[in-house]
């Protein structure tokens, strides 16, 4: 398959992730949609690495995976802390910082 097809799939997944972040209200699902976007970027990186025949893009994809794991850990910790304090798990209700 041509490399362009992989990039098209990556673009579609990224756009779906953007739609999810904008539409959904639960911070948990928003984190899932962020994962979708990071994975789309990973797919593009690996596709470009295949295109150039070098492995640097794959190393970059692995580092992105590490950063995504860190982001998930901290994000889920925040959600658990919100739940413990009895706050609503809903981004439309959490608007204390909105001016």
């Amino acid at each position: 398959m041509a490399i362009g097809w992989y990039l098209v799939v990556s673009a579609l997944i990224f756009a779906i992730g953007v739609a999810g972040v904008l539409v959904r209200r639960s911070p948990l699902v928003i984190l899932l949609c962020l994962e979708l976007m990071l994975n789309a970027a990973n797919l593009a990186l690996v596709a470009f690495s295949r295109m150039w025949g070098g492995e640097d893009g794959q190393v970059f994809a692995l580092i992105v995976m590490v950063v995504a794991a860190c982001e998930v850990t901290v994000g889920l910790g925040l959600i658990v802390a919100m739940y413990r304090r009895g706050l609503p798990i809903d981004v439309d209700d959490l608007r204390e910082l909105q001016g």
Partner: peptide
Amino acid sequence: GISGKGAPY
């Protein structure tokens, strides 16, 4: 490169 199958590896 996009329309190709990738560089030789």
